[in-house]
Design a protein around this nucleic acid. Structure first.
Length: 452
RNA sequence: GGCGCGUUGGCAGAGUGGUUAUGCAGCGGAUUGCAAAUCCGUGGACAUCGGUUCGAUUCCGGUACGCGCCUCCA
C-alpha cells in the first residue's frame, strides 16, 4: 500500500513519492508574529506536526521548514501602537508561539527562517524576475510581479485571470499594468522601516519571502508545500508564479492545505473577533485535549469549535488515558499495520482514533500497548498517564472555588457519617460536592475523588 | 458574477455500491447502602428530487440550505 496525499493543485489524492528516495522536504507557511496564536494556527501546527511525525515513523528523513514572517505592516502598526521597536514585539510573539506549540505537543521544525534574515535573498530573486521580464518597477517605485508573464497563473486555485478581474473589488494601485499584479518590493514612505536595495529603500512584499526562503532551504523544486486554508489565494498562487517564473521548473510537487476552524458556522478569524487564543484555551483544557480535539477531525475538513466539543473531547481522551499501560511493551504488529493503512490514506487521523477506542474496549495488555504506540506517533500521550491526570486535576483546581483541603475535609466528614450509617447526611455532602464538580468514588481502600 | 466545498443518528465525526464506524450523551443490566467509575447489552442516520443499477447513504444530474475563497488572515 502506498502513501496517498490529497494534492490541492491536482484536486485529488495522488500517490506520493519523494524527489529523492527516503527523503522529504516540506515547507509550511508559518505565522506573522504580531499577535498571539489562536486555535486556527494551532490546527495548522498540529496537523503538520502529526503528518511529519507519521512520515518519519514511516521511515522518511523529513526536512521540515516553517518560516516566521517578521516583516509586515501589521507588525509595524502594532509596534507603533505599543511604542516599542518592532523587533521587540516579534521577539515576544515568537517566544509565545514556541510556548504554545510546545504545549500542543509539536516538535520544532528543522529550520525556521525569518524574513528579516533573508532580505538579501529576496532582493536577488526580485532582480532575477526583473531581468527576465516577469517583474517591473511602477511609477511609484514599487516593484510588481507581472502576472501576464506567467501563463498558468491561477492554476492552484482553478481560476482564470479574466474571472478575477471581474470580481476585483479592491482599489488597484494606479501604476500596475494589470490589477492582478502583486507587489514584490514596496518603497518605504518617510518614517517607515526599510532595507536598502537596488530598487531603492523599502521592504519586501509578503509573498516573495516564502519563495526565497523555501527554495534556499529545500531547492528550486521540493516535495511538499503546506499551510492554512486562507493561504491558497493569493499567497500560494503568487508563490508559484514567482518561483516558477524565476526558475522555470516546478516549485512544490504536492500542495497541502488544512481546513478552517469554525465558530458558529463561521470561520474563526481576527476580523470577526470570534477567535480563541491557545493560551486562553489552555486555561480550561489540557493542551493534550486540545490536540486530541484537533486530530478528531480530518486535517482537510472544517472543524467546529465550541466549549462543549472540547468537553466531549476531554471525556473521550481521558478514557483513553485511563487504559494506557504503565510500561510500554511491544504492540501488536497487525494493529500497527492497520494504523499505517489508515494514515497512508491521506492521514486519516479520525479513523485512527476510532481504532484506538476499539482497542480500548478489548481490555488486553497488548491492545493497551498498541494504543500507546500509535498515540505516540500522533504526538498524543506525551505527558504520560500519571502526569496528564495530575496536570488536568491541577488545572481544574485552579478554576474551582473549592480547594483540595476543603474537599478532603468534606470527604472525611462524609466518611464519618457513613460509618455511623447516617446516609442522608453522607449523601447530602456528596450531592453538594457533585454540584461543584467533585466526583467521589467509594472503593475497597476508601474514598477517592477527582474533579470533573 | 467567478471558483470550490459541505449537508450522515441528540451532538461530534469517519466510511462504504448490497454486511457494525467510532466517541460523547441516552436507555437496560451487572456492581454499589445509594452513587461514581468500570464492564455487558441496546435503540437511533445518511438534506431533497430524478437517473444509472438486480440493488445507492455511497455513482451521475437537478433543487434547497449552509460555508469558504476571489482583499490582510492559519
Amino acid at each position: 500500500m502506498s502513501l496517498q496525499i490529497f494534492d490541492t493543485l491536482a484536486r485529488k489524492k495522488r500517490n506520493f513519492s519523494p524527489l529523492e528516495d527516503g527523503q522529504i522536504g516540506i515547507y509550511v507557511c508559518g505565522m506573522t508574529v504580531y499577535d498571539r496564536c489562536h486555535l486556527g494556527h494551532g490546527r495548522v501546527m498540529v496537523a503538520f506536526d502529526a503528518i511529519v511525525r507519521y512520515l518519519r515513523f514511516r521511515g522518511f528523513e523529513v526536512n521540515y521548514v516553517r518560516n516566521i514572517t517578521d516583516v509586515d505592516d501589521k507588525i509595524f502598526e502594532r509596534a507603533a501602537e505599543r511604542k516599542v521597536p518592532f523587533t521587540e514585539l516579534t521577539a515576544e510573539m515568537i517566544t509565545a508561539m514556541h510556548q504554545d506549540e510546545k504545549y500542543l505537543g509539536c516538535q520544532m521544525p528543522n529550520l525556521e527562517p525569518r524574513a528579516t534574515a533573508n532580505i538579501d535573498s529576496m532582493i536577488r530573486l526580485i532582480s532575477r524576475l526583473i531581468a527576465q521580464g516577469a517583474a517591473y518597477r511602477g511609477s511609484s517605485g514599487d516593484v510588481y510581479f507581472r502576472v501576464r508573464a506567467f501563463p498558468s497563473y491561477g492554476k492552484l486555485n482553478n481560476r482564470r485571470l479574466e474571472d478575477m478581474m471581474e470580481g476585483a473589488r479592491v482599489a488597484v494601485a494606479e501604476d500596475k499594468e494589470n490589477p492582478a499584479d502583486f507587489v514584490l518590493w514596496k518603497t518605504a514612505k518617510p518614517g517607515e522601516e526599510f532595507w536598502d536595495s537596488e530598487f531603492g529603500a523599502g521592504r519586501p512584499g509578503w509573498h516573495i519571502e516564502c519563495s526565497a526562503m523555501s527554495m534556499d532551504a529545500l531547492g528550486d523544486t521540493f516535495d511538499i508545500h503546506g499551510g492554512g486554508p486562507d493561504l491558497k489565494f493569493p499567497h500560494h498562487e503568487n508563490e508559484i508564479a514567482q518561483s516558477e517564473a524565476a526558475t522555470g521548473c516546478t516549485f512544490a510537487r504536492y500542495w497541502m492545505h488544512a481546513g478552517a476552524v469554525r465558530v458558529n458556522e463561521e470561520k474563526m478569524s481576527k476580523s470577526l473577533k470570534n477567535f480563541v487564543t491557545l493560551d486562553a484555551l489552555f486555561k480550561n483544557f489540557h493542551p493534550e485535549v486540545v490536540r486530541f480535539f484537533l486530530l478528531q477531525s480530518h486535517y482537510r475538513s472544517a472543524i467546529s469549535f465550541s466549549d462543549d466539543a472540547l468537553v466531549q473531547a476531554e471525556t473521550a481522551y481521558t478514557r483513553l488515558i485511563q487504559v494506557l499501560p504503565d510500561e510500554a511493551t511491544t504492540p501488536d504488529s497487525d494493529t500497527i499495520f492497520e494504523f499505517q493503512e489508515l494514515m497512508d490514506d491521506d492521514f486519516n487521523t479520525p479513523r485512527v482514533l476510532a481504532l484506538l477506542f476499539e482497542l480500548a474496549s478489548k481490555n488486553t495488555e497488548e491492545a493497551a500497548s498498541s494504543i500507546l504506540a500509535i498515540g505516540r506517533v500522533l504526538g498524543l500521550f506525551t505527558s504520560g498517564k500519571i502526569n496528564f491526570l495530575s496536570e488536568q486535576q491541577a488545572l481544574k483546581a485552579v478554576n474551582s472555588e473549592l480547594s483540595d483541603t476543603a474537599v478532603n475535609a468534606l470527604v472525611d466528614a462524609r466518611q464519618k457519617a457513613r460509618a455511623e450509617h447516617d446516609f442522608a447526611a453522607a449523601d447530602k455532602i456528596r450531592d453538594d460536592l457533585t454540584a461543584q464538580g467533585i466526583v467521589l468514588e467509594d472503593g475497597a481502600g476508601g474514598t477517592s475523588w477527582h474533579r470533573k
